[in-house]
Design a protein around this nucleic acid. Structure first.
Length: 349
DNA sequence: AATTGGATACCGACAAGGCA
DNA sequence: TGCCTTGTCGGTATCCAATT
């Protein structure tokens, strides 16, 4: 199968296939194309984004079955074979013999690689360890000083996953401030954001003042897009006192304020109406999993606000009004809100 | 003045892309 | 395949202001 044909055939399942490296496309063609076509026959679309609870359960089931077929003791041995040098050969042989790749991805309409990584996260005993203690943070800094970016080594020393230690370190590597933002910091943030936006829309050459103002105005219209794709590490460097994720979050809240012109859209009667509308719309959508919801579409319920604002509001509704929400599925939560809470809210109106 | 609930901030979990 | 980096999502603790 040559590369161009592969790209062409894959395109209907993976819209961004043209931007992928040739190497990944080849891999995907070999491992996934057949599966994708099978799913298409059954009328099932290939998915992206967060895994639904259903998919997670399917992975658990697939792993469990594979373990019982091969007699491999546990998921860690299956998914982190290199941690068990003595048994490596045997496990590899069993995986090949019993078609591990195929079995793992059974019933899940996604690229194989994504499923594999999801499974590794789920079954890594070094994952899900909760917050870092002070001592752990100190240890992490010490180990990094000794071993540099050898996250694999550090993760073993700390019994945390590679991903976890790498991310935590990037947060704590330089001293940052916590707590409320000072005026100066906010100013630096706004400046930094403006700079990267102007730089982006004005590729070298066009540098006249008027065109800069012009593009600035156009960008304000296009803010939803801008909100999502700013170079936050660059901005972090310009702000200096904050970590990039703090910057991003602060920017979102500033933007929300600007968009709502400081009105309190979610207070008093407005807020009540917004809650009611939100519940109604979600109920009407009949969606089974939270990541199928198009939150951007719902934002007009509250007003001119970013998507994340609506999501946060929904979260609040859920936590405040739905008992045992952690144990309920998304549609159960929506049903509860609609049946139990909606009448109450409407009465208050 | 106390209570209550919304806003804000923190940070772990996650997806996905690149490179070797 | 494995590993690292960058960017997004979501749960929770805390802060603060409106309400009683």
């Amino acid at each position: 199968l040559d590369l161009d044909t592969a790209k062409q055939e894959l395109e209907e399942f993976i819209p961004h296939v043209r931007q992928m490296s040739d190497h990944s496309v080849r891999k995907m063609a070999g491992r996934d194309l057949m599966r994708f076509k099978q799913f298409k026959k059954q009328g099932i679309a290939i998915k992206f984004g967060r895994f639904s609870e259903k998919e997670n359960n399917q992975i658990r089931k697939n792993i469990e079955e594979f373990l019982s077929i091969t007699g491999i003791e546990n998921a860690e041995k299956l998914l982190f074979t290199s941690r068990f040098p003595e048994e490596r050969e045997t496990i590899h042989r069993l995986k090949a013999e019993h078609l591990f790749c195929e079995k793992l991805s059974q019933g899940i309409p996604r690229a194989w690689r994504l499923i594999y990584y999801r499974a590794r996260k789920m079954f890594d005993p070094n994952n899900y360890k909760g917050r870092y203690t002070k001592e752990e943070k100190e240890k992490l800094k010490k180990y990094h000083a000794l071993h540099g970016n050898d996250w694999k080594k550090i993760s073993e020393m700390m019994s945390r996953s590679n991903l976890s230690v790498a991310m935590k370190y990037s947060e704590i590597k330089s001293p940052i401030k916590y707590g409320r933002w000072s005026k100066k910091e906010i100013q630096r943030l706004m400046h930094a954001v403006e700079e990267v936006i102007v730089k982006r829309t004005e590729p070298e050459g066009a540098n006249s003042r008027s065109s800069s103002k012009e593009s600035h105005r156009n960008l304000l219209v296009d803010r939803e897009k801008l909100l999502q794709k700013l170079p936050w590490t660059e901005i972090e460097a310009k702000v200096r006192t904050r970590y990039w994720r703090q910057c991003k979050q602060k920017w979102t809240s500033i933007l929300t304020n600007k968009m709502t012109k400081g009105q309190q859209l979610y207070r008093g009667t407005n807020g009540l109406q917004a809650k009611i509308n939100l519940i109604k719309r979600l109920y009407e959508m009949k969606v089974e999993d939270a990541n199928e919801v198009n939150w951007g579409e719902l934002s007009n319920i509250i007003g001119d606000v970013p998507r994340s604002y609506v999501q946060a509001k929904f979260h609040k509704l859920k936590v405040c009004y739905v008992p045992f929400w952690q144990k309920k599925t998304f549609s159960e939560i929506i049903d509860y809100l609609y049946e139990e809470k909606l009448p109450e809210l409407e009465q208050k109106l």
